[in-house]
């Protein structure tokens, strides 16, 4: 599968999500469903890599994307102060998307996936709630929190469908991307919950920056190893390393041998 085909499949998934959650008022007055491209890439990775793929799997993948969109909508609700009409509808958009995820899976009689995703949502909600607890988390615990938030839904999909061999690569990559975003936020002086948690033990922005860069270096090496373990083809490796994970510090040009 070449780069163009991969991109067009990702776009097609975005459109499918959009169609599935279409609702006039929400379309007009909210941002609409949003799922990070990297998450969609990993959702479709088994397909890109030639694994057996069916209509049921496609629906299942779509529902995972819809749940990501639901949780993203709720993340956009401002922490304090009375909320605007757009924000009120954003609350309902998240709830509506959750209803659609249940309905799509119920229609396909895929109740096991309903359960798996519900469990993943619980884990994600618990970790997000920890941002608001007065408990100091060590950097390793913060990392665990970030991993669950980024990957629990995808893991539910992988586990349910026998794709667990992609788990490590997916976790390393999504965490790497998350840290890239956190580093950017840190350098721009922006707020993030992860940075706030890290600052409780790493105390100074310079220490946080060093920690993030060190973790990204380790993850970067891990990603290269995992890519080989997953036996991805050349095109797929290239797209992953240069488009999905564009900021890799140690990204080197690939040879045909990988």
């Amino acid at each position: 599968m070449n780069g163009q085909q991969i991109q067009s499949k990702i776009i097609s998934m975005e459109i499918d999500v959009l169609k599935a959650v279409r609702q006039r008022t929400l379309d007009q007055l909210t941002e609409g469903p949003f799922v990070k491209e990297a998450r969609l890439f990993f959702l479709l990775l088994p397909f890109f890599n030639g694994e057996q793929w069916s209509g049921k799997l496609e629906t299942s993948a779509r529902t995972v994307a819809i749940v990501y969109a639901a949780l993203h909508a709720h993340d956009r609700v401002k922490e304090d102060m009375p909320i605007s009409k757009e924000q009120q509808l954003t609350v309902l958009a998240g709830d509506f998307y959750s209803g659609i995820y249940y309905q799509l899976l119920a229609e396909g009689e895929n109740i096991e996936m309903v359960q798996k995703l519900a469990t993943a949502i619980i884990q994600v909600s618990e970790k997000k709630a920890s941002f608001h607890e007065l408990v100091i988390q060590q950097p390793e615990q913060v990392e665990e929190t970030a991993i669950v938030i980024e990957t629990a839904l995808l893991n539910a999909f992988y586990e349910e469908n026998g794709f667990s061999h992609y788990k490590q690569l997916m976790e390393q990559s999504l965490l790497y991307i998350r840290y890239t975003e956190e580093l950017e936020a840190l350098r721009d002086g922006k707020f993030s919950y992860v940075l706030r948690l890290l600052s409780e033990t790493l105390t100074h922005p310079t220490f946080i920056e060093r920690w993030l860069i060190a973790r990204m270096e380790t993850l970067s090496n891990g990603i290269l190893e995992s890519i080989n373990d997953c036996e991805l083809d050349f095109e797929l490796k290239n797209i992953l390393l240069h488009q999905i994970i564009p900021h890799r510090h140690s990204a080197e040009p690939l040879t045909r041998e990988g």
């Binding site: 639901a70 949780l71 709720h74 993340d75 609700v77 401002k78 922490e79 304090d80 909320i83 609350v91 998240g94 709830d95 959750s98 519900a118 469990t119 949502i121 619980i122 994600v124 909600s125 618990e126 997000k128 709630a129 941002f131 608001h132």
Partner: peptide, 14 residues
């Protein structure tokens, strides 16, 4: 706060 309410609702629905 609003965020905790959002996560609580998501958690209970899940």
């Amino acid at each position: 706060n609003n965020s905790v309410a959002m996560y609580t609702g998501d958690f209970i629905l899940a």
